[in-house]
Each structure stands twice: as structure tokens, then as C-alpha cells.
């Protein structure tokens, strides 16, 4: 599997560390309540198909990436810097 890092170009999967669903970017307010936090930390859509997830280019530039990827075909779609996806 190869991931096109917006900074480094397309690189082998071994350079990246996988974190999980990009839900992790949507941190609730501290007082958002049990449901919101359970959703944020634990419950997952876990789709068999396209998904949006977080990868860290640990063996490369150190950028956190938001990667659109299909969990069935492993096809990679859009890749963006997490910092730009947020701000």
C-alpha cells in the first residue's frame, strides 16, 4: 500500500503509522456529556468501504494526514494535511 504524502510524494505504507478513524479530530467539549465522549473515543462506524482516517508520516516528514481510503479495496483517495483539514 502506498500513500501520497502531500509533502513527500507517494511513499510505502511502512513509513506511516495508522491511528484510526478521522473522528479523532472532532474532539468534543469537556462538558459535552457521556454520549458524545463515548462516541468520540469508542463507537465507530467501521465501514466496509470508503472511510476517512488519520495516518502519521512517522518515517518521513512527521505530518499527520487525513487519508480517504477504501477498507475493502485499499484504494486511496484524497490525502490532506490534518493541520490544514482542521484550520
Amino acid at each position: 500500500m502506498r500513500i501520497p504524502c502531500p509533502l513527500c510524494g507517494t511513499r510505502d505504507r511502512r513509513e506511516f503509522w495508522y491511528r484510526g478513524a478521522a473522528v479523532d479530530l472532532e474532539r468534543p467539549a469537556p462538558d459535552a456529556g457521556v454520549e458524545a465522549w463515548d462516541d468520540f473515543v469508542y463507537l465507530r462506524e467501521n465501514p466496509a468501504g470508503p472511510t476517512r482516517e488519520l495516518w502519521y508520516h512517522e518515517g518521513g516528514c512527521g505530518a499527520w494526514l487525513v487519508v480517504e481510503r477504501d477498507t475493502v479495496t485499499h484504494e486511496i483517495g484524497r490525502v490532506a494535511l490534518a493541520s490544514e483539514e482542521r484550520s
Binding site: 500500500m1 510505502d12 505504507r13 511502512r14 495508522y18 484510526g20 478513524a21 467501521n46 466496509a48 472511510t51 482516517e53 481510503r69 477498507t71 475493502v72 479495496t73 485499499h74
Partner: peptide, 13 residues
């Protein structure tokens, strides 16, 4: 392999 997958196959790393 350490990424979400339903593909029942892996990669070389």
C-alpha cells in the same frame, strides 16, 4: 497489518 481492512489480505511491510 495495522490499518482498518475488510480485504482478508495484507501487505509486505
Amino acid at each position: 497489518d495495522f490499518y482498518a481492512s475488510y480485504a482478508a489480505r495484507g501487505n509486505l511491510p
